[in-house]
């Protein structure tokens, strides 16, 4: 295992979970999907895993993270959990994903209020955790937000907040990159080297951009 490239100080658990995420990514690769995989960990246990299914579903939003989230939500709803309980549970979950979440997934993770995210390689073209946008560094409970919820509580309609410049930032989550990045990149490399898997001519399907190895700061 090459964790020297990922720097020191990465705990063995983190590496073990990332190993599981990489397994998911390999499964995606075997199914001729862009090889990204993830696992969601709650209290040290794997509660969900997911991998890219964009080609299979013909839905380009079916990224690994979305797959795992949907699985988890379905499971919790089946158990009869309320929204608040689900939100509470998400706030205790960590995500391990082989590639930096794209803007869509980073926004989704922020909406759900995920606790921590660990990723492998950075995603210079689409990354939402620092590469293109920084959706993980939200501004939870700013003063205006507190005031806003207070006034709402009192039944006031603060439409002035919306017409003005005041914005509510999303929830942030802690994010660390560079965990086994070279392994994640190697999977991408073999994916792009095996050619165009679905027989869709390159002129038709835009060529995906290969993420590059880059150490992200947490």
């Amino acid at each position: 295992m090459d964790c020297s490239s990922s720097g020191q100080g990465i705990s063995p658990e983190t590496l073990a979970y990332m190993e599981l995420a990489l397994d998911q990514a390999k499964e995606a690769l075997d199914s001729l999907e862009v090889p990204v995989g993830c696992v969601i960990i709650e209290d040290g246990k794997v509660v969900a895993s997911g991998r890219n299914r964009t080609s299979e579903t013909r839905n380009a939003t079916r990224h690994a993270e979305m797959e795992a989230i949907d699985f988890l939500l379905g499971k919790w709803q089946k158990n009869g959990l309320s929204k608040l309980e689900v939100a509470e549970k998400f706030s205790k979950c960590n995500l391990y994903v082989t590639c930096e979440p794209c803007i869509m997934c980073a926004a989704a993770l922020s909406i759900l209020g995920m606790k921590e995210v660990y990723y492998g390689c950075a995603n210079d073209k689409f990354g939402g955790c620092g590469s293109v946008l920084s959706l993980h560094s939200g501004n939870p409970q700013s003063l205006t937000r507190t005031l806003l919820s207070l006034s709402l509580h009192l039944g006031l309609v603060p439409f002035k907040f919306y017409s003005g410049e005041v914005r509510q930032e999303g929830k942030g989550f802690k994010c660390s990159g560079g965990v086994m990045a070279s392994e994640a990149v190697a999977l991408f490399r073999s994916f792009y080297e095996q050619g165009n898997p679905n027989g869709i001519p390159l002129s038709f399907a835009p060529k995906p951009h290969r993420p590059v190895v880059r150490r992200a700061t947490s």
């Binding site: 380009a60 794209c102 803007i103 926004a107 914005r167």
Partner: peptide, 26 residues
């Protein structure tokens, strides 16, 4: 749309987006 939806529309290769109401919050 919020960032999640807007990026989803990038992924799905939508050509044009028309919206009626701006979203100052997100």
């Amino acid at each position: 749309p919020c960032p999640m939806c807007a990026m989803a529309l990038v992924h799905q290769r939508i050509r044009r987006i028309f919206y009626a109401f701006p979203n100052a919050n997100a």
